[in-house]
Amino acid sequence: MEYGPGVPVLREVSFTVAAGEFVSLLGPSGCGKSTLLRLLAGLLPTSAGSVRLAGQPAEFARRNGTRVAFVFQDPTLLPWRTVAENVRLPFELQRSQAPDIRDRVHAAIELVGLAPGDRRKRPRQLSGGMRMRTSLARALVTEPNLLLLDEPFAALDDVLRQLLNEELVRLWQQSGWTGVFVTHNVAEAVFLSQRVLVMTARPGTILAEIDVPFPYPRTAALRGTAEFARLTATLSQRLREAVL
């Protein structure tokens, strides 16, 4: 994958994510994490190499039954639609004829912790956290096989970020999707994932692959343990190497 003449964004990046796994891509700004995520979604063509979802080229897989959902850095909601209308959008675009769309939309909204009264609100009436929850609901409503998250909580304050991390872990455990989470926040990557891939700056490559041994369900208490602190420190050190 190259960005402009002669400047590759990513080089020799190779990894596999098992079905149902939760993996984080941890790297400094501008290391091509977001590009990588868009390659996985089949939204960008590769200039060399290939991306396979369930054994098929990404875009082909997406058009043939593999459900891929994306959570962007911004909530990316349609401001003229209500919360429920935003969450329903994927069904509309896919021309879904499912009879229970309404129920699934309501269930997804409840799942991410929004109240039934929020369904008819528009994005501008919501706080930043509630907008991000809406965005999550829109991604989860189609019951994706693969959920790609591009620094979704980077713009939120620390407390809210931690809360949403805890909920994301809960949501992942409840359903069977595979998660690939992009972030530059070490604690976030450790808290969420089973495995962390540390990336270097341009051209992006994978510097290290680190397993996170903590069992699920993970709760807020995990952040206070010595093991968590130790692993976070190790990863921070690797991340420093990636920048230098």
């Binding site: 868009r38 979604a41 939204l43 891929v68 962007f72 850095q73 911004d74 990316t76 959008l89 675009l93």
Partner: peptide, 16 residues
């Protein structure tokens, strides 16, 4: 552009 990606991801038609 993120919204365009969202629409593409859901295989939206040009008309949609």
């Amino acid at each position: 552009p993120d919204l365009l990606d969202l629409f593409r991801l859901n295989n939206a038609s040009r008309w949609q």
